[in-house]
Write a protein that binds this DNA or RNA. Structure first.
Lengths: 225, 225
DNA sequence: CCATGTTATCGTCACATGTCGAATGTGCTG
DNA sequence: CAGCACATTCGACATGTGACGATAACATGG
């Protein structure tokens, strides 16, 4: 939701040579006064001012988080005047959903969440940092080389979940062909799995999992992880 | 360049309920050891470990910045294995360039940088937080309502710079029509300015500036600001 | 000009961060 | 198993953050 904008602001603040001034820039952008923000954060305006004027040169993650959250909260109270402008840009065709986890998630836990079981001999003792859910036929048709970046988002240490696969052959072939490799592959509600798909997963050392769940349920379950 | 990925990481770390674990996640993503990172940051591995295990719960902006910069630096030394994957996605047609400043920039300073002078009576006593450089004809043709968000990026407190304008009439009409307003408008190397454009700028209380510089020069000059 | 809203400055103080070095696990590999 | 690379845990200590309240400097507008 507003996670994207919060992340953007926080990132900019941290990278800035003048974190305080950057905080101020954003507060001004939201048209929120020090007093209102202080009230919302249950503190006093001088604290805000001290940070913005960089009496404290390196504010801690906790403070930045609360400050940014405060801006977004107050904006929401004011009818999301600024927040509305983010507007969740849509994914490419074929990408049904994706997410980056903020901490590493054991593949084992991920699999349990989806009632997925391993096919083939590769163990599940690794972590993943995100996932992408793809509609296999559409993804393979409409995602050319240039768009692969989008599939992998910010990390390749992710699970690629393919929906609408019959034998799982073409997805695995595509992975085989591409230089970027996922950390795991999941087939959602597949038919009978092609032995070649399994062989490829073993050659590539990428765990292959299957689940009986349909795509929408998968998104739901992964929502809270 | 890699500013985008650094921002992303830093933002995620700050917002995370477990900043340390998120730092670790990214270091693992880059496949860099604590020892190497410590060496690069001119410190000892235990420091890295302490943060990642959250012995310190709220690392300061300075530390996070150095840590993230370290990851990207080392990745660059390794041939940008991870960094390559960002791949600067292209803008919409008609958008020649845009930037978000990390601190507020006085419009006056901005104008001087571009050798721009004000047209009309609106003063330049305000700050801007970024700019977008547009090819006027193409932008007006190809950017529909849904894409306006993109023009404004993360903040509306920005200068819209239009290149290839003749009279400046349609750009100002477009601004007049749209609910989102920029903080300033610049015409790059225009012909004779239509009086209506000036009137509109005054009605909207948006300073209107002109510069003789062509678009590429503008991008160069704003690069370092 | 007085009230109100907004921001800046500063003294103070507890406690967390930032940093190091030494010691203590793991796990791989020759 | 010895040796190495990698990671963790912990004691110690200086400095900076995080917080508050008091005071003052500014606009803005009744």
């Amino acid at each position: 939701m507003d996670a994207e904008i919060r992340e953007k602001i926080a990132g900019e603040v941290v990278l800035s040579a003048h974190p305080g001034r950057t905080l101020r820039k954003w507060r001004e952008d939201f048209e929120i006064s020090q007093r209102d923000l202080a009230r919302h954060l249950e503190t006093v305006p001088s604290v805000i001012s001290d940070y913005e004027s960089e009496r404290r040169a390196s504010p801690g993650a906790g403070f930045i988080r609360r400050y940014v959250q405060g801006l977004v909260d107050l904006d929401t109270l004011h009818g999301s005047r600024v927040g509305q402008r983010l507007g969740a840009r849509p994914h490419s065709e074929g990408i049904l959903g994706m997410q980056e986890f903020s901490v590493a998630v054991p593949l084992k836990a991920f699999a349990e969440r989806l009632d997925a079981k391993a096919v083939g001999r590769i163990g599940l003792s690794r972590d993943i940092h995100g996932y992408t859910l793809l509609d296999a036929p559409r993804a393979i048709l409409s995602i050319d080389a240039a768009h692969y970046v989008e599939v992998y988002g910010w990390t390749t240490q992710r699970a690629l979940i393919f929906a609408n696969v019959r034998y799982g052959r073409s997805p695995m072939v595509a992975i085989r062909a591409h230089p970027l490799k996922p950390a795991a592959v999941v087939f959602a509600n597949p038919g009978r799995i092609d032995p070649l798909a399994i062989r490829l997963s073993e050659v590539e050392n990428i765990p292959l999992l299957t689940t009986a769940l349909p795509a929408p349920t998968i998104l739901e379950r992964l929502e809270e992880l």
